[in-house]
Nucleic acid binder design. Structure first.
Lengths: 152, 152
DNA sequence: CTTTCTGCAAAGTGTTTGCAAAAAC
DNA sequence: GTTTTTGCAAACACTTTGCAGAAAG
């Protein structure tokens, strides 16, 4: 967990700055989060955290995730229906998501052309950019084959 | 309400096709929805419907909105936090949204370049397009001026 | 008449919050 | 020591659902 070190440091810096406290539960939630590569819901993260320390409560996980968002260590992604999903934000480049509507597989991508076009939209309406989310939904190659075989 | 006529016809066709029934509440919910230009939540629509017919229940509005979605007359938009918002989908072109993070003002836009780039992303990953949602968040000209004056 | 639809209230998600005890500083 | 944080459970916001009666076809 070399990479985790930096993220934990970043959280401590953020907490110190706001005169908040670094605690065991917060460190554990962050470490478990960093160890999960996929896009997790707070609930899933809670389940994973419980395996490390069953004493940590759900509310603490929800509160810590919010804290991580504020600290720039986590960000919400895939705002489809259902619970919010979070992904790593610390030293992770911006990207968008392509989600399979059948199996839920997620591809992350970056399209400079889209980013440029978005900047043009902001400019042409006089808006100051804050954030943007693009989610493409579709059927992945595997699911397309599966259902094509089943139907045809 | 000339335009509404077509939409009501479209709903009736959809219902007939599925052997479902056209009812007073459904017609009223659709008509009120069509009369609202902004992006409404089901709850807001319920409030508006109550003014026309106080006897219509909240569950009916929620159920009808879902029905309108299935029938292609409404679509969800602006999946930010909070309740889902719906917009007209009947004979309304696809577009994306630019939302002010301060006052909530919504600009609808269409960027062919973005659409083309999205198609490229689908193709390059072998996904079959199903739907996509792009939401740009930023501060609108009015809010920028307001807070700039207040702060500087 | 048979089936679907309705309104109500209750249950269901997913998330937040009030509180007294516990931990950080 | 003072302040923040924790875990629990209760509350919360939004949405769905079970049911008996009402309406549509």
């Amino acid at each position: 967990m070399k990479a985790a070190r930096d993220a934990v440091d970043a959280l401590e810096a953020y907490l110190r700055e706001r005169e908040l406290k670094m605690t065991g539960p917060r460190r554990k939630v962050l470490e478990v989060f960093l160890g999960i590569e996929s896009h997790v819901t707070a609930e899933e993260l809670f389940e994973a955290v419980k395996k490390v320390d069953p004493g940590i409560g759900q509310a603490t996980v929800f509160r810590t995730v919010k804290l991580l968002e504020e600290a720039g260590l986590a960000r919400a992604a895939c705002r489809d229906d259902g619970p919010r999903r979070f992904e790593h934000a610390y030293r992770h480049e911006h990207h968008d998501h392509l989600v399979c509507t059948d199996c839920g597989a997620i591809v992350e991508f970056e399209e400079p052309e889209i980013e440029r076009a978005q900047a043009r939209v902001y400019r042409s309406h006089g808006y100051e950019p804050v954030a943007h989310s693009l989610e493409l939904r579709g059927r992945c190659p595997a699911c397309r084959r599966g259902s094509a075989a089943g139907r045809a």
